[in-house]
Amino acid sequence: MRSASESFWGSIRLAVTVALMSACRATEYEYLSWRPDTYSGGPNYGKPPQCVDIPEDLRLCHSVGYSQMLLPNLLEHETIAEVKQQASSWVPLVHKNCHPGTQVFLCSLFAPVCLDQRIYPCRWLCEAVRDGCYPIMEAFGFPWPEMLTCDKFPQDDVCIAMTPPNATEATNPTDFQTIPLLLSTGYSDICPPCDNEMKTDAMLEHMCASEFAFKTKIKEVRRENMDRKVILQKRKKMLKAGNLKKKDLKTLVLYLKNGADCPCQQLDNLGNQYLIMGRKVDKQYLLTGIHKWDKSSKEFKKAIKKLKTYKCPTFENVFK
């Protein structure tokens, strides 16, 4: 039996197909036919487009609700290997639930639905996701990337959009100017580095988004402007060194970016041992993750064990 998500996306594909066929006066619909873009900002590809199955290990988009995607995609990735390498870095952001349309927005670019014409996300969807997720990215020291500049996306052409929950549906089904997507959100106001699930995959994702990780206790926490300054005990057990030198480790001070007022339970309990993660941004070291060191947790022990051999995606290739 097809899930509600699959049925929903099936309806969307049919609707867009009918719209595109009507607009182009097509007599027969073919997935592999290719017509000039209505969106002038589209890239020029060296390879002809093709429909391919979304692989299970493309975690960002395998659950998005449709089974096939176009290659090359809308970010000029020409192989599945390249798509997986680049898309994997965005999985932690989707898990943060910073905006209900994050996965749909990203997958419309990384794994666009297999239709007769490239369908880009609407500019205002990009802006909504950017405005919701940028504070999360900033907390981890990442800027909104140039490749996702919202001005690149269309306002008036056929495009991927979403309608806020409980909003009155205003889209004319004969126009197909937008595709409404009703999604729920579970966004939390907890400081992003502190809002960590005790799940193996989630912990590994946080460690991959960090340059270094170690076990230690916290000596003191102070407010400094809009940040929180985290002063650590001198004794630390290194798990992932990155570019951190031993001399830096002794006097290391971390900052919880824009975290002066958001809740962080871990920083209220200074007697515990913690798994601390961070990365250097400009001249500051940012706290990017903090977990209670809990050997009674099977998920925690599994994450610590897997960290030694786990191959992380290269975040610098994506967030630039």
Rank of each mutant, 00 (worst) to 15 (best):
K219Q: 13
P193L: 00
A209D: 05
A213M: 03
A202G: 07
E211D: 11
N196T: 14
D195P: 04
K219I: 01
R223A: 10
K215M: 08
A213H: 05
M203P: 02
K219G: 10
M207L: 08
R222W: 09
E205A: 14
V221M: 01
M207V: 04
I218G: 01
V221C: 05
F214Q: 00
M198I: 14
P192E: 05
N225A: 15
M198L: 15
T216G: 08
R223C: 09
P192T: 00
K215L: 13
C194I: 02
E224Q: 14
H206N: 14
K217F: 06
F214D: 03
M203N: 03
A213P: 06
P192V: 02
K215Y: 07
L204W: 07
C194N: 06
R223T: 12
K217G: 11
P193T: 01
A209Y: 03
K199I: 10
K199Q: 12
N225V: 11
V221P: 07
K199W: 07
E197F: 10
H206G: 14
L204N: 04
E205R: 11
K215A: 08
E220D: 11
E197H: 13
A202F: 11
R222V: 04
F212P: 01
R223I: 15
P192L: 03
R222S: 14
R223Q: 13
N196D: 12
A209S: 09
V221K: 01
E211P: 04
E224V: 15
A209G: 06
P193K: 10
E211R: 01
E205D: 15
M226W: 12
E211I: 06
M203D: 05
L204A: 01
D201H: 13
E197S: 11
A209E: 04
D201W: 12
F212M: 07
E205L: 10
C208R: 00
E197Q: 15
E224L: 15
F214C: 00
C194A: 06
L204G: 01
A209K: 07
A202H: 12
M226H: 12
F214Y: 08
P192F: 07
I218Q: 00
F214E: 01
M203E: 04
A213L: 05
H206S: 12
M207N: 03
T200L: 08
